[in-house]
Amino acid sequence: MSSAMISVKNLLKRYGGFTAVDNISFEIERGSIFGFVGPNGAGKTTTLRIIATLLSKTAGEVAIDGRSIFENPRETRKMIGYMPDFFGLYDDLRVSEYLQFYGEAAGCRAIDVRRTAPALLELVGLADKSGAFVNNLSRGMKQRLCLARALVHQPPVLLLDEPASGLDPRARVELRHILKELQRMGHTIVISSHILAELSQLCTHIGVISGGRMHLVGPMAEVLALFEGDTLLEMGVLERAEEARLWLLEQEGVKDAALTNRGTLEIVYSGDKSAQAQLLSAAASRFALYHFTATGNNLEEIFMKLTGEENHEHQPASG
């Protein structure tokens, strides 16, 4: 049995002239929590919707447990529990009726749903809300109910699109505990977010996407190690900015250099202060500098800089 639960190969999705997902490939290990991170409009939702059989592909292949999802979408739907980023609920249904409906619609026997629903509600912390009307639940509770709905037919794969959006910090922590528990139970979880910090505490693997392209894929620890100790520098040059950018990319310790809208250069740099001083001195001897500052070493910030720029390529850490 292959260790890959989900395999995406050269997936391409175009809307007319716009490419939402640009030839991406990655694999998700069985039993892992895969974080799909990238800025808004990066292609996360489109990719998840294709895997959830809600959207057709333009080209490429997606397989779950070795079987193509496009050959038999109905069979695929048995294997996935999908939670969209925006979803509605049938407000006039009770919580138990809501789960009963989706359970039966997912092909489960009514009696089986009645048997498993209490345990599901217990898992998501809604055991005491079984008889409550859905419209009386808080945002966090609705989110958890939607998670229970995605689990009602006991799918091995969970696709969660921005599940923590709009939740307060306490609800986020609760959701994290639930997802950890689900991983322990053997589910493979794909979770998308534009907040890296949220995923870094939860995921075993991560994929970084922007502009429809996958920039980095790999185990969380390996990907984070790539950025450990990195500093974000900002440099202002009076002229020949592009030449300065190319020069910087050749310097030791410079992982990335990009021209900003303000005309300055943003540099992802992995060196200490004395190395920074040497870089500044070398740059000043070649270019007319008017500004040089370390803007921070925030992991999130560095990540977003990397994913925000679509004009230059990054080498993936691993496959």
Binding site: R49, A52, T53, L54, R74, R77, K78, I80, Y82, P84, F87, G88, L89, Y90, Y102, A105, A106, G107, R149
Partner: peptide
């Protein structure tokens, strides 16, 4: 609720 509906069996 459309997506959730068509995602069923």
């Amino acid at each position: 609720t459309f997506d959730l509906l068509v995602c069923t069996q």
